[in-house]
Amino acid sequence: MMETFFIVAVFLLIFMIFGVIRIILGPTTPDRVVGLDTINTLVIAAMIILGAAYNEVIYIDVAIVYALLSFVGTLYIAKYLEGGL
């Protein structure tokens, strides 16, 4: 079971590279934010998976914090792009 979780995590990390490529290429800034958002989601998924892989309950708290707070950063960038603030 454990190695399955690890392999899934490796896959998620490989998918993160796509997000990074989008940040590099992204012609406009919103494209880059989309890339960041994707990486965020994948990191949260990876954290949950790795928490199960290590059999450590308390690690999942990190994923919760991340899920709640990565939103804040995205919102700030979005607000800047809107021209408000």
Partner: peptide, 10 residues
Amino acid sequence: AVAPIYTMAA
């Protein structure tokens, strides 16, 4: 090794 927390460490 695991994190230095005794709560439910494996």
